[in-house]
Design a binder for these strands. Structure first.
Length: 250
DNA sequence: ATTATTTGACCTCT
DNA sequence: AGAGGTCAAATAAT
């Protein structure tokens, strides 16, 4: 199953960019089809996993829904000097700094996270301890529209086998973690489930234009986000084991 | 001129 | 104190 998902993702990454430049309508349909396929796959995988869950670790895995213990932040009072009053600060829940995981996060590993439909704006970059590549922080471009979705993208380390720089670039994989759901755009296209994915790429910073066609449903699960091959080696979800592993089966 | 990205400072949590 | 996450001024791109 995992292999299948991986292959579908690869095909998706290959096809969508090509279609995107040619026929937006087809690209849009392709996105939905891919996501539908993926969604079916995930659904089955989730059920299977639910049955097998007891086995613990679950080395394999695919999606992770990480739930955080707390939504964090205390209300920080922005009293006195300087605060950013942009617009209006919401005194209460907006803490702003340090949000860690919102409700749940979904991680995904993919190379070339592009074309999925959401538009993101980069708001930060950080080097993470011991990691080779920096982590990039993005938030939904429509944040004003009440959309609090954010994501982080980080290139996975490449092992020795790397040959040329080019090769590395092409094989580069990125770990993308999504936080929050998109509440912007309510325009859902029919399809049952809507996938939403997003992507951006980081390296080079060159191409990042995100596509504009995004349509997103408000479905809250990001399928895409779910699937993937997850190399847990790079990610330490220390918390996730205890919290939610959100599978459907009770 | 406007909008997006870069990047160091700032903030919070562990 | 250090690490991770966010802000915002400066800068770059459009």
């Amino acid at each position: 199953m995992m292999r299948q998902q991986e292959l579908v993702m690869q095909l998706r990454a290959l096809v969508l960019p090509l279609l995107h430049g040619v026929d937006y309508t087809s690209a849009d349909i392709a996105v939905q089809l891919f996501d539908d396929v993926i969604g079916c796959n995930i659904s089955v995988a989730s059920k299977l996993e639910g049955c097998l869950m007891s086995t613990g670790a679950g080395g394999g895995t695919m999606v992770e829904l990480v739930d955080d213990k707390s939504l964090v932040r205390k209300s920080m009072t922005s009293s006195t000097t300087g605060d950013r009053t942009e617009g209006q600060v919401k005194p209460n829940s907006v803490g702003q700094k340090r949000r860690r995981n919102d409700k749940r996060s979904r991680s995904l590993v993919t190379h070339v996270p592009h074309y999925d439909g959401h538009q993101w704006r980069k708001y930060g970059q950080k080097n993470i301890n011991g990691r080779q590549h920096p982590r990039n922080y993005y938030r939904c471009a429509y944040r004003e529209r009440n959309c609090l979705a954010t994501k982080t993208v980080e290139q996975q380390e490449q092992n020795a086998g790397t040959s040329s720089a080019m090769a590395v670039e092409e094989n580069a994989k990125y770990t993308v973690v999504y936080y929050g759901d998109h509440t912007c755009k309510n325009h859902s296209t029919s399809m049952v489930q809507a996938p939403q994915l997003v992507n951006m790429d980081l390296h080079n910073g060159e191409m990042d234009q995100t596509t504009t066609n995004a349509q997103e449903p408000e479905a809250d699960l990001d399928l895409p986000a779910l699937l993937e091959v997850f190399d847990s080696s790079l990610i330490n979800w220390q918390d996730w084991n205890e919290d939610v592993i959100y599978n459907l089966s009770p």
